[in-house]
């Protein structure tokens, strides 16, 4: 049984996975805050979700516990639902202004 094995595969340890996932989270966050294309911004939030998913799987393997993997399946479902919603909203906006830039939309602001 794979789960029962505690030998690291190819020398990869939990820290490697945690490094990857935290990098993904930070890249996603920075991308979200700096990019202005709505599709790219959405992809950045997806990156952040997947960062959490990688962390879940790595921890699940570390603790020899399947619930982390189960969690990831649900995360993927939520990500799919969010993707459907995001594309619908972006299409809605694109029909009005024919641009994907978030800066074209600034009717709502402090006066």
């Amino acid at each position: 049984m794979i789960l029962a094995s505690t030998v690291p595969i190819n020398g990869l340890t939990l820290s490697h996975y945690m490094l990857t996932s935290s990098l993904l989270l930070v890249i996603g966050l920075i991308g979200f805050l700096t990019r202005r294309n709505m599709i790219v911004m959405f992809l950045c939030t997806e990156l952040m979700l997947q960062a959490a998913a990688i962390a879940m799987i790595a921890f699940g393997r570390y603790h020899l516990d399947v619930s982390g993997q189960v969690f990831v399946i649900f995360i993927l479902t939520i990500a799919a639902a969010e993707a459907a919603l995001a594309l619908a909203l972006v299409v809605l906006l694109y029909r009005h202004k024919a641009t994907l830039s978030a800066e074209a939309w600034s009717e709502l602001r402090e006066t």
């Binding site: 966050l29 959490a52 962390a55 879940m56 603790h63 909203l89 906006l93």
Partner: peptide, 23 residues
């Protein structure tokens, strides 16, 4: 759109927190 994008971002941060709690 504003609500959704920021909500998705916040949900990811929340989820990462949950991942660490699980870890």
């Amino acid at each position: 759109v504003k609500y959704f994008f920021l909500g998705a971002m916040a949900a990811s941060i929340f989820l990462y927190g949950l991942a660490l709690l699980y870890g």
